[in-house]
Write a protein that binds this DNA or RNA. Structure first.
Length: 893
RNA sequence: GGUCGCAUAGCUCAGCUGGUUAGAGCGCCUGCCUCACAUGCAGGAGGUCCCUGGUUCGAGUCCAGGUGCGACCACCA
């Protein structure tokens, strides 16, 4: 069955993915004794749909996983999804809103039920899309952070940390989203510079002896002021410390205190202190024993404490207050001011510092071992500079607020007794309090990241002691973006070390962010989002994956250029057509199974034709380079080497050389046929981690011994081929042929010689051995360069009135008589001589420098000397030719 | 305010431990529908490697400073 002329990815992709699943090829077995390789997927949110970040992240993981699986590892890749507390709750709440209702009306149980239903119907979208990408996860181990098993792990961790005093409950100032009506961790607040105002207010001293001026960006919080602070050494105010001021609007009397937190240079040097609405003020208030008065409620509406402003929204209260103060002369002046306004990372509502009772993880004792593990190399970041980011955060880490006032998530396993105010923290729901009172469970749920922090071991069955855990923990590598180093990587480190006694992963490969072609972050609001599914539809999954891998250079953001994806689509088509060619050579002959090229003996290799030896040598070279690049996460290097080999060595040269052998027929043709199929077969295995679909499709079309096997579990070509020990001679020999062919083609094109017509040529070869080789390899010259008559000259001999070029010690002459004007060749030659002269000058400069000869290593000096000699003789030869041309012209004229 | 990253061809980018003629893709120019492929083939043009110093026999590559982008962290009202 002949293949289509153009590769059609859609015909191929779905079919093979289903086949792989059906044959269970991605399943890993803990009893499989081969070396372990394991990864856990960064679990996408169930609310998500596949974006470029996912596509890159999972493609890189799949390349590693498929490569390791083929390379003889017991490779496990655990997939799954995250329940994504706020995000998911928001989605379902929006649905309810559209239906004209809300979660309060529904009640907690019904609401949670509703979210589960949503998850069952829509939460699998992203998994379907990942499968489309071709990822080779062990789907039998797919997990969800709210699964029974993972929930058990969450409770276990909570209880153990609580029992050790590492989880505590406290009334504290936390970040609060008034729209989501929940606490947020520090990380869940996004700061952005925002234009605002600085309001200068005059607070009168209670004793009537004057006033003190304070500045604030948030005048409405003054209703909760409980002090004014000045610097202890500020001469302007030292007499006032201990006195009191009377708050405008509500008349409360508050003290003036001294604290060196105050910056004397800023504003008036006096600060209003609002412990319940500002983090600095909260700390200062604790130092000075000041009361904290909340003037806003959980919806950021002013409370009764706000007196006349009670019931107003925070911004409305500000407007009224400013107007009133302006009228009453309290407002001294207003000036524009930039501030870093914090917003909720889920809904962008400005967050509010809010005083409330929350659960916290005492983080320092957990952070310390996590820092040590990276310092001593038990976990290694790639690229290494991310360690610095990790350290700087870990070393300045604050206690982690883990309670969320949401309904969707892991309910906090704490129960309170109505009767005796006991708190019970337990793995399973307790029935009654020891005092006989009824128990109420804490209404809050845990931060989503609490459960994702357990992911590397909870997915493997912890807290059970499972075979999977013993086999695959610690995982080999975590592949993720830098945006979640703090959210996720750091937490997994802490939890893994705490509960497994070992790091969760040996290496962390941090990849870049995908941006648009102008380097802008993709976002819906900018309208520059490129949908990976559309890209896959347009160019095919393999082309898309290959493009992502080729883009994934370390330490740089990825700008997604669509024309490059198109380029890799063309590459896939090129491979497809190379396969078509190979298969055409096999038509009408007995299906001799292809023999893996790695099984060739050195003796058999030596007996092959020169072109065959050459392509095998290049294959081995590419294989070694790809293997090394992957081992170092240099994905782009691996991809470009593969591309270079497949297109510019295998297709451009070897296939063309093979045609010559086929035209000759006989045993040579048979041997070439075997090499051709062998190299293609090997190339498909080499390609498979990058482009799983096309490689399988082609591989299956080849005549193989094990017809039933899939390329998924075929052996990856070894980094060292047994026969490729000493291929230097072969490569030089074929390299010379290629050089001569290129020189002739160049002359033909530059001189505008007719492309179809065979040209006569003459060659003067310096080295006798090289000449013997070239004479044997003559058929390649004739065909590839379209040379008709070929004459062999003695070294130094030249041809009058010919275009010439010098490559690898071979001077090529193409007689021009009657073909073109000589002037054109003189121009071309002069240019070439200029180039060589420049190179020669560069080398000569080095060699003329005495300290270069003195201090550079001997082999470098020798190398330069050889180069100088080559350039010099090349220049001389070209100049000789130039002279003969000039003579010819003079004679002609 | 602190930390980090990046500046190489018209565009998007490679260039690992300092030593080939600084590379690729796209775009551009010339010529080809050559029996695997026009999603192709052959050839070509195009670069003060951001600036200034320094280290070195030798710097796109290492160091310092500068300029310009970008990112992250941060409780100065």
């Amino acid at each position: 069955m002949p293949l289509d002329k153009v590769y059609d990815p859609h015909r191929v992709e779905r079919r093979w993915y289903d086949e792989w699943l059906q044959r269970d090829l991605f399943r890993a077995d803990p009893d499989d004794p081969r070396p372990a390789f394991s990864m856990v997927i960064p679990p996408p949110n169930i609310t998500g749909s596949l974006h470029m970040g996912h596509a890159l992240n999972n493609t890189l993981q799949d390349v590693l996983c498929r490569w390791k699986r083929m390379s003889g590892c017991n490779a496990l890749w655990v997939p799954g999804t995250d329940h994504a507390g706020i995000a998911t709750q928001n989605v379902v709440e929006r649905q309810l809103q559209a239906e004209g209702t809300n979660r309060q009306a529904l009640g907690r149980e019904a609401f949670v039920d509703r979210v589960w239903r949503w998850r069952d119907s829509s939460g699998g979208t992203i998994i379907m899309q990942l499968k489309r990408l071709g990822v080779s996860c062990d789907w039998s181990r797919e997990r969800f952070t709210m699964d029974e098993g993972l929930s058990r792990a969450v409770r276990e961790v909570f209880v153990r940390l609580y029992e050790e005093g590492l989880i505590y409950r406290d009334r504290y100032l936390i970040n609060w989203c008034p729209r989501c009506r929940t606490a947020l961790s520090d990380l869940e607040v996004e700061h952005a510079d925002t234009d605002g105002h600085l309001y200068h207010l005059r607070y009168p001293l209670a004793d009537g002896s004057g006033a003190i001026e304070v500045a604030t960006t948030r005048p409405e919080t003054m209703l909760g002021d409980t002090a004014v602070a000045v610097h202890p050494e500020d001469a302007r105010y030292c007499g006032l410390v201990g006195k009191t001021v009377r708050l405008p609007a509500i008349g409360r009397e508050i003290p003036i205190v001294a604290d060196d937190y105050v910056d004397r240079e800023f504003g008036s040097g006096a600060v209003k202190i609002t412990p319940a609405h500002d983090f600095n003020d909260f700390a200062l208030g604790r130092r000075h024993g000041l009361p904290a008065i909340s003037v806003m409620d959980e919806g950021a509406v002013m409370t009764a404490e706000a007196g006349p402003y009670a019931g107003l929204d925070r911004y409305e209260a500000r407007k009224r207050l400013v107007a009133d103060f302006e009228r009453d002369g309290v407002l001294v002046r207003t000036e524009p001011h930039k501030l870093a306004l914090g917003r909720c990372y889920r809904c962008q509502t400005p967050v509010e510092p809010y005083l409330s009772l929350q659960w916290f993880v005492k983080i320092a004792p957990l952070a310390e071992p996590a820092i040590a593990a990276v310092r001593d190399g038990r976990t290694r970041f790639v690229p290494a500079h991310w360690e610095k980011t990790y350290f700087s955060w870990m070393e300045n880490i604050h206690d982690w607020c883990i309670s969320r006032q949401l309904w969707w998530g892991h309910r906090i396993p704490a129960w309170y007794c109505d009767a005796c105010s006991t708190t019970i923290v337990a793995r399973e729901e307790p029935t009654t309090c020891s005092c006989g009172g009824t128990l109420r469970q804490d209404p809050d749920v845990l931060d989503t990241w609490f459960s994702s922090g357990l992911w590397p071991f909870s997915t493997l069955g912890w807290p059970e002691d499972t075979a999977a855990l013993r086999r695959w923990y610690p995982t080999s590598v975590l592949v993720t973006g830098f945006d979640i180093i703090f959210f996720w990587v750091a937490r997994m480190m802490m939890m893994g070390l705490k509960f497994m006694g070992d790091v969760p992963f040996r290496e962390v490969y941090i990849h870049a962010l995908v941006r648009d072609q102008h380097g802008q972050k993709m976002s819906k609001s900018k309208g520059n989002v490129v949908d990976p599914l559309v890209v896959m539809d347009t160019y095919g999954t393999d082309a898309f994956r290959f493009a992502l891998v080729a883009f994934a250079a370390m330490g740089r953001d990825i700008k997604l250029a669509e024309d490059r994806i198109e380029g890799y689509r063309n590459f896939m088509n090129k491979i497809w057509n190379a396969a078509r060619f190979v298969l055409m050579q096999l038509e009408d002959r007995p299906a001799e199974p292809v023999r893996p090229v790695e099984e060739l003996t050195a003796q058999a290799y030596a007996g092959l034709g020169i072109a065959d030896q050459w392509i095998l040598a290049r294959l081995a070279d590419a294989g070694a380079a790809i293997d090394e690049a992957l081992a170092q996460y240099r994905f782009n290097d691996a991809a470009s080497r593969l591309y270079e080999f497949a297109w510019h060595e295998f297709c451009d040269w070897y296939i063309e050389m093979a045609k010559i052998a086929f035209a000759a027929g006989g045993d040579t043709a048979e041997a070439t046929r075997r090499t051709l199929v062998g190299v293609l077969e090997c190339l498909m295995r080499m390609l498979h981690p990058f482009a799983p679909f096309i490689s399988e499709e082609i591989w299956q079309a080849l005549p193989r011994a094990a017809r039933g096997a899939s390329i998924v579990t075929a052996p990856y070509p070894p980094a060292r081929m047994p026969w490729a020990e000493d291929t230097g001679m072969v490569e030089a020999r074929v390299g010379r042929v290629i050089g001569v062919v290129r020189a002739v083609r160049n002359i033909r094109a530059e001189m505008n010689l007719p492309p179809g017509r065979a040209l006569d040529a003459a060659l003067a070869v310096e080295d006798p051995a090289a000449r013997r080789d070239l004479e044997i390899d003559q058929p390649m010259l004739h065909t590839l360069a379209r040379i008709g008559g070929l004459r062999w000259l003695a070294p130094g001999e030249s041809v009058r009135g010919a275009a010439t070029a010098l490559v690898d010690g071979v001077q090529v002459f193409v007689p021009l008589a009657g073909l073109v004007d000589v002037d054109e060749e003189i121009r071309r030659l002069t240019k070439e001589i200029g180039k060589v002269a420049g190179e020669l000058a560069g080398v000569a400069r080095k060699l003329d420098n005495p300290s270069f000869r003195e201090r550079a290593p001997a082999e470098v000096v020798e190398e330069q000397e050889q180069k100088a000699a080559t350039f010099a003789s090349k220049k001389a030869a070209l100049e000789r030719s130039l002279r003969t041309l000039e003579e010819a012209r003079a004679a002609g004229a």
